[in-house]
Amino acid sequence: MKSNKGKDLIIQDVDKSFGSVHVLKTVNQVVKAGEFFTLLGPSGCGKTTLLRIIAGLEIPTSGAIILGDENITSLPANKRHVNMVFQSYALFPHLNIYENIAFGLRSRKMNAAEIERRVSYGLEMLALEPMKKRMPDQLSGGQKQRVALARALVNEPDILLLDEPMSALDAKLRASVQEELRRLQRKLGTTFIMVTHDQDEALVCSDRIAVMSEGNIVQCGTSEEVYDYPCNRFVAEFLGAANMIQAKRVDGGVQTDLGFFTLSKIPTWSEGLITIRPEWIRICESQPASNGLLVTVEDSVYRGTNFDLLVTPGNLRVRTSSYKHFKPGDQIWLELTATDLVALGE
């Protein structure tokens, strides 16, 4: 399989309405060639619609989709060099695995030798060789997903689209498939665009994540960027647990009900929210030099790899390693490090 042909995808002012429902609100985004890009958001945020617009299965109400230097907005799905792994995999039930994978190649009337070569490569790449004569309903969920991947990838598309590819798999399989998918993408160098509502999936797989809400891309960045520096409360809370503290800007830091804290990045607002992830709050033996907070443990929840402590004041959640035990009623010093406290935008 050829490595990526280096075509960037530009989503330009894409707007989509279904009747009176405004699903996408003037979305702008560039997806670079060869990256694993994820559209992350709750159901109904418009992420699947955006994916279907890229696939050519929906036409945007306005705006343009540009692949490389070609405007493909009104190009029908069957003429686009973009392939999709459907949520339910949509394997043809009356065709065996080999024929399912060969489907796109046969549509394009490739010669028999080339079809044989590409399908064999696809079967081998996704470890499907032993089941090539089987029918789709004889496969497990994970195998079906690999067939769907192979069926799309043998076409050597400019972009591979994945619509909630893990949703039909059980939790245990999901973790290994996420890493496998990421490895596959690195190996092929093809642009992958994945839609998901699962933040773990997005963090594990992606080079960049675009967090969507109500038809807008709220924040776009690398996994670290969106997790460590969420731009607003929605992103912070959607990507995992986050403590929210109401704050007012004062000289050198912020004033909150819990006291004065310094931040490495001073907020631009005069009043707003600051946030810190539970696992970044440090538990100290004694009062820290700055950004310290004396709290009482309200509850301690064992989670296998760690304990979640719920503490007052502030109703904060603190994630601590499991070898150290705290009981409700214990008084402890916390340090909310300046570099870990993030001021959220509106």
């Binding site: 050519g56 299965l57 799905a77 069957n78 973009v82 999709m84 949520q87 339910s88 949509a90 549509s107």
Partner: peptide, 19 residues
């Protein structure tokens, strides 16, 4: 979704119908 998959996999209208 099978119809869409066929379209996505470069099928002409006739092929979408028959396949």
């Amino acid at each position: 979704s099978l119809v869409e998959a066929a379209q996505d996999l470069y099928s002409s209208r006739t092929r979408v119908f028959f396949k």
